[in-house]
Design a protein around this nucleic acid. Structure first.
Length: 157
DNA sequence: CTGGATCTACTGC
DNA sequence: GCAGTAGATCCAG
């Protein structure tokens, strides 16, 4: 079990790896005040490279190994569907709910427990009235990510 | 356009 | 059981 902090456009991200260097958990730490980058240990370079490319708009899909553990079957199904949403696109909670014969609110609960925000793109799930809905890292970050992907995707035409 | 009532299903106590 | 949601829908004002 290893962990790092890495500075990103949306703030400081904490990343936890398991013993085989798969990513296990991602979170934001708002209490770090410096904007001086911390040296990334060698074992984490593959992942942070992908992360940097994503924020530069040069990576549309993460291929780094992830580890989903201590997750219910229901949550896993929701996360797997969420992982299929293409870059720059959004779907609604209701759209996922209908595919799994559940309710939109249960989908929201499952996404709230997503241990790997950004990598598993739960920010691409919004409400059916067009508003954003919630986000475990804060709706401001959700808005940022959607706008970032929209801009990058629009250049690809 | 708004806010409330009511539906919904999953989790945690 | 029951309450609390990262939701949806309908209806009155």
């Amino acid at each position: 079990m290893y962990f790092i902090y890495v500075l990103c456009p949306i703030g400081w991200l904490g990343v936890v790896f398991d013993e085989f260097f798969s990513v296990k958990k991602i979170f934001v730490n708002k209490s770090i005040k410096t904007d001086k980058d911390i040296k990334i240990p060698d074992f984490a370079l593959d992942f942070t490279n992908q992360l940097n490319l994503y924020f530069k708009g040069e990576l549309l899909k993460f291929s780094y190994p992830i580890k989903l553990q201590d997750i219910s079957d229901f949550d896993k199904k929701v996360l797997e569907l969420t992982n299929e949403i293409p870059y720059g696109k959004t779907v609604t909670y209701n759209w996922i709910a209908k595919k799994l014969n559940t309710s939109p609110i249960a989908v929201g609960q499952a996404l709230k427990r997503n241990p790997l925000p950004i990598v598993i793109p739960c920010h691409r799930v919004i409400k059916s009235d067009g508003s954003l809905g919630g986000y475990s890292l804060g709706v401001e970050i959700k808005k940022w990510l959607i706008e970032h992907e929209r801009l990058v995707a629009s250049k690809f035409r």
